[in-house]
Each structure stands twice: as structure tokens, then as C-alpha cells.
Computed example of a mutant assay.
Amino acid sequence: MTEIEPIFDKKCECRMCKKSFTSKKLRSRFTKVKDYDTDFCPNYTSEEANPILYHVEVCPHCGYSSTSDFSPYFPPGTIEVIQAKVCDQWNPHDLGQKRKLGDAIKTYKLAVYCGLLKKEKYITIAGMYMRLAWIYRSLQNEEQEQRFLKLASKTYVDSYMADDFRGTQVSEVKLMYLIGELSRRTHQNDQAVKFFSKVIEQQNRSIESGIIEMARERWYEMRDSQKTANQA
């Protein structure tokens, strides 16, 4: 009997240059989560079994980078901009092989750049910023983690204001919680309290009781630490 490998080749077609390529993916049965951080960052049992490393697909031919969250639609003029700023500058190489944390960081930064040029939804860009922050957290690089948590926080607020999260897997309650939690982690305390309060206000209207309870816990933690600070 053939042993199934955790990592396999996914066949892809680039939406920019239309050429075929393969990108490594991790089979879900091999991913085991130990626990989650309060911003939903999953902690896996091993670095090798981390699907976040393989979330981005990079075309080795032209450099166009995207995730499954990207829309197939290119707004007018964006193909020409990506061609000039990404594809024409690209030195062909393959990032679709087995990845370390450093390789994954490169792929996310490429995808963020392509996503911004393509005018992807704020919710899509914010998700990539947050995953970058999680990777830097696992590398214990607090400076870069803070940088990308702040970018994620700002872009999630943009998504909330633009209402562009509708129709995605991120509900309004989860989005408000994320803004609150990322704000708390980046010491934007007023904004954190504001969004945690918005989540708690949904307690009689939402089925997402777990997220509402998490918001309440964070709110109490912030209140208690503020009391301690005032007494010091």
C-alpha cells in the first residue's frame, strides 16, 4: 500500500499569464492544532504541518501571486499595472515547493502587493496581513508582528466601514471581535474597547456566543489592567 504524503502538488493556472504550474499544499488530515491564540492564530503541533505556509500560490513564470480568497475579476486597468510592476520585473523562480517560514513570508508579501495593485477587497488584504503577523509571532519577531497586526487592524476597519466582508466566511461579529483584539494587541485601547463593546451588544441577536464570550473576557482583562495601572 502506498503511503500518502502530507504535502501534495496542486495544479494551478495563472490568471495573469495563463500558464500552468504546481504549488505545494498540505493535506488537511495531517494538520493538528494544539490550541488557538486570542486572535484565532492556530498553533500547530509541528512547523512542517502548518497549512498557513502554503496559502499563497506564486506563478513561477510571471510572479503573479494570489490566494483562494482573491476574486477572479480584474478591475479595468489593473492587469496592465500588475504586468508593469510585477510580471515585467519578475526573475522566474519557483516558490511552489516545500516552504520554511521565511519562504512563506516572501509569498505573502508578493500576494499583498499583487492584491493591492489588483484592488482586492480589504477583507482579503487584511487576512494576509494577519497571517504575516502570525508567522512573525512564531519567529518571535515582535517588531514585525506588531507592524503587521497594525496593518491588519487598520484594513479590517476599512473592511468594516466599506461593508466588503459580506458574503465571505468572516461574519460581522467575528470581524468586530478581530478589530477589537488586534487593537488591544497593538495598544490602541480606545478602539479595542469600542469594538469589544459592539460585539457584546450583539449577545441577544447573534448565535456566535463563543466569540461574544471571548470579547467579554478581553474587555474585563483590559478593565482590570487599567485599574491596576491606575493604582500603581
Rank of each mutant, 00 (worst) to 15 (best):
H93Y: 10
A49N: 11
K119C: 08
K194R: 15
G127V: 01
T38A: 07
M161R: 08
V112C: 10
F30T: 05
G167T: 11
D94A: 06
M176Y: 01
D190G: 09
Y108T: 02
A215E: 12
L117V: 13
Q97C: 07
E142W: 05
E48L: 05
Q146H: 09
C17I: 10
P51D: 00
A162Q: 06
D37T: 09
F21K: 03
A49G: 01
V86T: 10
K227T: 12
I82P: 01
I82M: 14
N189T: 15
M16G: 07
V56G: 01
V81Y: 04
D158R: 03
E47V: 07
I179D: 03
I179V: 04
E181H: 02
G210I: 11
T38F: 09
R27T: 07
R99L: 06
T107N: 14
K25T: 00
C62E: 13
E208K: 09
C114T: 07
I82A: 10
R27D: 12
M161G: 01
I82C: 10
S71H: 02
D164P: 00
S171F: 13
F196L: 15
L101M: 06
D9R: 05
P76M: 14
K98D: 05
S138T: 13
T38K: 10
N204L: 10
E221P: 03
D35G: 04
C41I: 00
S23H: 02
D69L: 14
T22N: 09
S206Q: 07
A126P: 07
N50G: 00
T228G: 05
C62W: 07
Q97I: 08
R137P: 03
G127S: 12
N141H: 05
Q169G: 13
A162W: 00
F70Q: 02
F40I: 03
L116S: 10
W90C: 04
W90M: 05
I125G: 03
D103E: 10
F8G: 02
M130T: 04
N204S: 15
L139C: 00
E143T: 04
Q144E: 11
I200C: 12
T67V: 02
C62F: 04
W134Y: 10
C14F: 08
T155W: 07
G77F: 03
L139N: 01
L132F: 11
L95Q: 14
P42V: 01
S183T: 06
E57H: 09
Y36K: 09
T78Y: 03
R15T: 06
R15Y: 07
G96K: 08
S209D: 11
G96C: 06
K118V: 03
E120I: 00
K150E: 11
K119S: 09
S225E: 14
L139R: 09
Q144F: 03
M161K: 13
H187T: 08
E5F: 01
Q146N: 13
M1Y: 03
E80D: 15
L110T: 04
Y64E: 14
Q188K: 12
M130K: 13
M1R: 05
I200N: 14
R216E: 12
F195Y: 15
D39M: 03
E217T: 14
Q83S: 12
